Amino acid sequence: MGASKREKMAAGEWYVCIDPELDALRTAAQEAVFEHNSLPPRQRGNIGPALRQLFAAVGENARVEAPFYCPYGFNISLGDGVFINAGSVILDTAPVRIGAGTLLGPAVQIYCAEHHKDAGKRRAGLEIARAVTIGEGVWIGGGAIILGGVTIGDEAIVGAGAVVTKDVPAGVTVVGNPARVVRG
């Protein structure tokens, strides 16, 4: 018997996300996200209890503002002092690691899921999951989009609205679509 769709997703292989096991995991995440987004701020604290439990790791004083969305949650790791501003979305079909002291502006989008380029395979629902790693002390401006497979080095800056399609070296600033280095 072949690998399950969840195993294929975790291995970075092509898979179809319509699957009872993946549906159940998404439902658990939806409930945790709903709780996080619905709790009054004083009850929610830095991260709603169910969402905190769902995440792979949550560092000290990490904070996720509401509203927030993720389909699975168990692939998200936040370092100490990470701040994720309101309206952010992390499509965590693959691991997303955000290093200590990193700040995400409002409406930042991180997309690990990539659909097949072949139209027939795309219609069949094939997608692949690519991890995202964001270093320590990074600043990502509001509305930026980070695509799967990208690594952003320590202390880099991603300008507001940038679309990051390739790795970003440590200590540089990138802007635009596609993002390009403007200074090191």
Score class of each variant (00 low, 15 high):
S88L: 03
G135L: 05
P67S: 11
G73K: 03
G87V: 13
G137T: 09
I134H: 01
A129M: 06
V174T: 07
P169V: 08
E155K: 14
G161N: 05
A100M: 07
C112H: 00
D154G: 01
A28P: 09
P20H: 09
A160R: 04
I146W: 00
A119G: 04
G142E: 08
G120P: 02
V58C: 10
M9A: 10
I47L: 08
N85S: 15
G161M: 04
S88G: 09
R44F: 09
V89C: 12
G79M: 04
I140H: 00
Y72N: 09
A66N: 06
E114K: 09
R44C: 06
I134G: 00
M1S: 11
A86I: 07
A50V: 08
Q53L: 09
D23G: 06
I157C: 02
N37I: 09
P49N: 11
I98Q: 01
I47M: 07
V172L: 08
A162R: 02
A32E: 06
L104P: 08
V181Q: 13
G99T: 04
L54Y: 06
G141S: 12
L51Q: 04
A66T: 15
N46Q: 10
E136Q: 14
H36L: 13
F68N: 11
D92T: 04
V108Y: 01
Y69Q: 07
E35S: 10
I128N: 02
V16E: 11
T27K: 15
G2H: 12
